[in-house]
Design a protein around this nucleic acid. Structure first.
Lengths: 335, 335
DNA sequence: GATTAGCACTCAGCAAGCCAGAGTGCCAGG
DNA sequence: CCTGGCACTCTGGCTTGCTGAGTGCTAATC
């Protein structure tokens, strides 16, 4: 079964390189790994693996390191790694006493970054369409008001609207009463219809339409387009294998969100349990030296958690941790 | 005025080192700077400056670089630098169409990081004690409820409380009605007294005390202990002058908040217009290679904006930008 | 046909040695 | 108090030579 041994060699190279961050040679492999063959045989295998583009030499007569394609092959063949019991417990205790959605997300991202020793990212969970519970309008200065919408699934959204011309206190109070009477308990198309009607009523305040828009938007479902991250220092920590000038673009991508969001969308579309992008597979220059491991969670598995680190990362461990956190998040978020 | 020239020499050394990131020698100084004296004289001055601990040689017979103390002396003698007109305009346009408090803070921190090319930090503004406008309770699962408090100054706070034993829908609705009736329009000590009374009423739901606490906390004034940052990639960008292993601890400090908050508190206490901590003056190991420039803003100047970067930073420029953003923020937040 | 042993070859990394240039400290004279 | 001059020091860059790890190939062996 020479084919099978070649896989084993690739496997060993990946693990060796991940562990030491140094090119691994045939001799060392023959000695430390119980492959049962001599270094010469391994050299032959290596030559073939190199032809297939799975490994490469950083320079002539150095050991081999895996290419992106090599990692890919390794990952595809990977059986899920069991999560250490200690980690499993940590997830439970760490997340169980979260106080609201923000808190859950915040804790998750911290936890995941600690478990994986990578940068963790969590996309805000998607939201069910909900009904209006209460609308508050609060004056801010002469020309603006803040619209606060509390919806039935305990979300709170706020946004300011311009009042345009001066509005009397009576009109203002009347608008608050009316919009609550109109919207209370409604959601979706019926809410929209009712509010449109209300806004068009004769003698209505001129900013009623703007308020209606905010209320409708606040109860709409869908994914909030936002990710939070934690553990950025893991990128810079010694032995991350990333040079100082590679990490700046990565930090930019994390802060800018948009690149990251697009990538997460793509990965979500793949629909695997845990999905992995390796190096250039991310299709973003800034991330071409990093890999990202992500798993979906929540209603319809529509949001993502992930870990991002150097291509030379511990894939089995990271995938295990990401999967576990995703599962836990699903439980918490779906109730 | 030999004393005065020595100041000028220090000044020149700081500027030279900031610009080139290389030790600056007496000859180069005599040639490029119009100091009107020869390099030998400058050498004598340098010897004295070195004795005073203001400059140092990285190794024998290299040029000099400023010490923390040298930067300090430089900064203390600094006249405020005028802010480029383009920047001034940018602040106006960039911040003017912010939509709510979060948005203001978010935009400010981005803007400041761009202006200074450093990591910008903004502490959330302090809040006036406010009155209750509306309290909402939303059931979440069987055992928890979310308390949402909208206060008169348009703040919205939310927190979940445990219900303990099962509560009937009637009791729940009654509690909502009562708490609103009790708390509406009240703030401070009177609010606290009223709610305490309400929570202790006979036949009251067991979680009334918890709700009361949340409501009181939500309207209390004071500074929200939270900072946001942006521009972390500036730390890693080429030429920042920070090594890869110095930046990891800095990123940690930024994410952990607590170190940063303590430092900002200390700086706020100094009460200067713009306050600067240089290198070891931060008293934190993690930040010993960085400086932080901060200015207070908002009511009672109780919150801070700042920029954090390598000790070798452009102090005049950074101080100008920080001051300008702080002023603008004050305007926006105080209305 | 697959595996192994042996051998010649390549090349990074390190140490040593050398040189040039920048910078210094000090001294004597203006 | 300033300046010119001089001897001295040290880094950084360059070359050179060596060692050891690792390779590819071929011929012999299972």
């Amino acid at each position: 079964m020479t084919e099978e041994r070649r896989r084993a060699v690739l496997h060993a190279i990946v693990e060796g390189y991940v562990a030491t961050h140094e090119p691994v040679g045939s001799k060392a492999l023959a000695e430390t790994r119980a492959l049962g063959v001599s270094s010469a045989t391994i050299r032959n295998d290596m030559a073939i693996l190199e032809e297939e583009g799975l490994i490469a030499q950083p320079y002539t007569s150095a050991g081999r390191i895996p290419t992106d394609k090599g990692y890919r092959s390794f990952v595809d063949q990977l059986a899920a790694a069991a999560l250490p019991e200690a980690h499993r417990r940590a997830i439970g205790t760490f997340l169980s006493d979260a106080v609201d959605l923000n808190d859950v997300v915040e804790r998750s991202v911290r936890l995941l970054s600690q478990l994986t020793r990578q940068v963790a990212v969590v996309q805000y969970p998607s939201l069910r369409e909900s009904a209006v519970r209460r609308v508050e309008l609060v004056r801010m200065g002469a020309e603006h008001a803040l619209v606060v919408v509390v919806s039935s699934d305990a979300r709170v959204e706020q946004q300011s609207v311009a009042l345009g011309e001066a509005t009397s206190d009576e009109d203002f109070e009347r608008a608050v009463r009316e919009v609550n009477a109109t919207a209370h308990g409604l959601g979706g198309a019926r809410l929209e219809a009712a509010l449109t009607l209300w806004a068009q009523a004769p003698d209505q305040v001129p900013w009623a339409g703007a308020v209606a828009d905010v209320v409708v938007a606040a109860t709409r479902g869908g994914t909030v387009e936002r990710v939070v991250f934690a553990g950025a220092s893991n990128l810079a920590r010694a032995g991350s294998g990333l040079e100082a000038d590679t990490i700046a673009p990565v930090l930019d991508a994390l802060e800018e969100q948009v690149v990251l969001l697009r990538l997460l969308h793509e990965m979500a579309a793949e629909g695997d349990d845990v999905s992995v992008r390796i190096g250039a597979e991310t299709h973003y220059e800034a991330l071409s030296r990093t890999s990202i491991v992500a798993a979906a969670y929540g209603r319809d598995a529509s949001s993502l958690v992930g870990a991002l680190g150097p291509t030379r990362m511990d894939y089995p461990g990271t995938m295990g941790a990401v999967r576990a956190v995703a599962r836990y998040l699903s439980k918490v978020v779906e109730l």
